[in-house]
Design a protein around this nucleic acid. Structure first.
Lengths: 354, 354
DNA sequence: TTTAGCACTTGTTATCTTCGAGTGCTAATA
DNA sequence: TATTAGCACTCGAAGATAACAAGTGCTAAA
């Protein structure tokens, strides 16, 4: 059923007010608001209908109205006005782009921090695990007792480790290690490292085989760490400032969801895989991201058609969606600009917003 | 003033009980406890004295006694018995050593996680910023559009970045970059990069100078990120389970201290610099680590005489110090074994605890 | 269709009481 | 002299009660 113009106006006013104060809003409060030139009684009637239609509800019989999940949904999908980021806010966000060059991971962490600060909600960023396998290995001689072991993955990502050993190493030895690795281990991922690989690797090392065990350990660790979700969380305490979380149990519930990083990352990423754009999850209706008292806004980060992760905000259900959405969208738009087209740093430095 | 044996026994019993239940403990409760064969009246008298001596206090006139900071201090410094880690617990901790080879950073993070799980308190690990300057640069050609830029610091640490550029790169170009960097930038730290350096670097790049801006940006970022404290926090929600933090404001206070990572790291590290061993901070008396309701146990991590960071636990003031201390000490002892003597992996793999 | 008026509902807040745990003190006891 | 039983006292926690305020739905009039 379509909402009349007046109903829309009232619904919007109720939600705006509720977002601002957190108090259930009554008919009298709305009387002067907006361009509603009607009495409180009329508003009461309308609110009554809005309640029966499922957009509002009463916490208890003699309180004002509070938006339902459905109410929030229609609010977000059209009722709310657009939020224009202030110059101050733009400056903060742009600084993120100025100082974090190239690396999406730290760029997202910084952005997450900035967004948490400017919205005053908890924010998070999640990076999709790589899951790719090793394509090529390189080594770099550092000094008598250490060398750098570099793994170049099939997807272009790079992992490396500084390997320190008791025995003294030489540039030739380090080169031999790279050769042996490339001969035996290229293209494998962590569960494909068979005993045969290992033995062959040792054999190929020849006179240097004494170091094989150490190298294999490091390799094993590198292969495994590639496919680990990276979750960054910012501003947890902010959540605790809102009255909806003044009950510790509720606060614990919300924070626990974030703290179980592995599980949280899985949920966020599966959701970001399905949806290409920003999604909003209110309370219980968030599916696997269900949280009775919190709302979550989730923005997948897609670069060159690949979902590389997501960034988002968690706040009370009544959070300032327009501001949160504007911030996230500004970020993702600029990330796009910066990384699209074979991720070029140099060119983008000129284009980047001032 | 020395405490009589009986006073010690009573003080210990009070604290043991308070740690267990969180309730102020009264004289009657202690009657049957331990080997105290005296009436509640006698205990009352003793407790009265212990209060006047500053070891106990009453939350209000008609409640039981609660330990003061001084009480906890004497408890920790001798009254409490030693906690023996269970086989289960040893296994969990040892697994940390088994799976994280070599890299102190992730080893500490994993240990922090394990310790949080087994003690049920919040834990954290802090890494001292390096602050060293670049000694030498290396580059490694990856593909047409990217190369690896490696910075070897004066203290032996290594930072590196995968630099992606639009223009196509060649192995020779990449080599030229390394040479130019080594000629102009070795030995500098971030605030010593002068305009002169920059210009000279560009000049030395010669025909490749088009890439200078990108490289400099990355270098600048690397130089700065070296001296960033790394703080890892685990099990924040655990704190919220204790009644002393059932007031959100108190919980917020405690968590906020952890969340202001920069500030927290500074405090932890300054404290870890002064003290060589494990320290315990109770409530207000923690100096700069002051927290009205929380206790902190802090264990510096010292490798080859250098304080590289610290690991610690935060819980309610009445936390199970013996267990926390035992866990932290076990960890630090084994870290010592693993990394002492020019940090050798290979040798230690045999020694490491099973 | 709108509105003024009113009875009704219900959470909030404050006040008061009761209850119980625990104390300190005194006087008796070993 | 050290210990203990007994008791009056204190003070917070928990519960009951009442006053209050906010907000509603409904009715009847405009």
């Amino acid at each position: 059923m379509e909402l009349s113009d007046r109903k829309k106006k009232i619904l919007k006013s109720v939600i705006d007010s509720y977002i601002r104060t957190g108090e259930p809003v009554g008919s009298k409060l709305l009387t002067g608001t907006a361009d509603l030139q009607v009495s409180s009684a009329t508003i009461r009637n309308e609110m009554n209908e809005l309640e029966r239609m499922g957009y509002l509800e009463q916490p208890h019989a003699s309180a004002g109205r509070v938006p339902t999940a459905e109410g929030y949904r229609t609010y977000v999908n059209g009722l709310m006005e657009q939020y224009l980021l202030s110059l101050e806010e733009l400056k903060v966000l742009n600084e993120v782009f100025n100082y974090k060059v190239g690396e999406i991971e730290r760029l997202m962490e910084s952005a997450s921090h900035a967004i948490s600060e400017m919205t005053n909600y908890t924010s998070f960023s999640v990076l999709r695990p790589e899951g790719s396998s090793a394509q090529r290995f390189e080594t770099l001689y550092i000094d008598d007792h250490s060398f750098l072991l570099i793994m170049i993955c099939t997807d272009g990502n790079i992992r490396n480790r500084h390997v320190k050993v008791k025995a003294s190493v030489t540039p030739e030895m380090v080169r031999a290690i790279a050769d042996a690795l490339n001969a035996t281990m290229s293209g494998v991922c962590s569960d494909e490292v068979t005993l045969q690989c290992v033995l062959e690797f040792e054999e190929r090392l020849g006179e240097y085989s004494g170091i094989a065990a150490t190298v294999l350990r490091v390799i094993y660790d590198m292969l495994n760490s590639t496919d680990k979700e990276k979750v960054h969380i910012d501003g947890v305490t902010k959540l605790l400032s809102y009255p909806e979380f003044s009950d510790v149990e509720k606060a614990k519930g919300a924070i626990a969801v974030l703290e179980d990083r592995k599980d949280f990352a899985a949920k966020v990423l599966s959701r970001s895989g399905d949806e290409k754009g920003l999604t909003v999850h209110f309370g219980e209706t968030g599916g696997d991201l269900a949280l009775p008292d919190a709302g979550i806004v989730l923005q997948p980060i897609i670069i060159n058609g690949k979902t590389v992760g997501a960034i988002g905000v968690m706040g009370p259900k009544r959070m300032d969606y327009k501001k949160v959405i504007a911030s996230l969208q500004y970020f993702v738009d600029n990330v796009g600009k910066q990384f699209e087209g074979e991720s070029d740093n140099e060119q983008e430095q000129r284009k980047k917003p001032e």
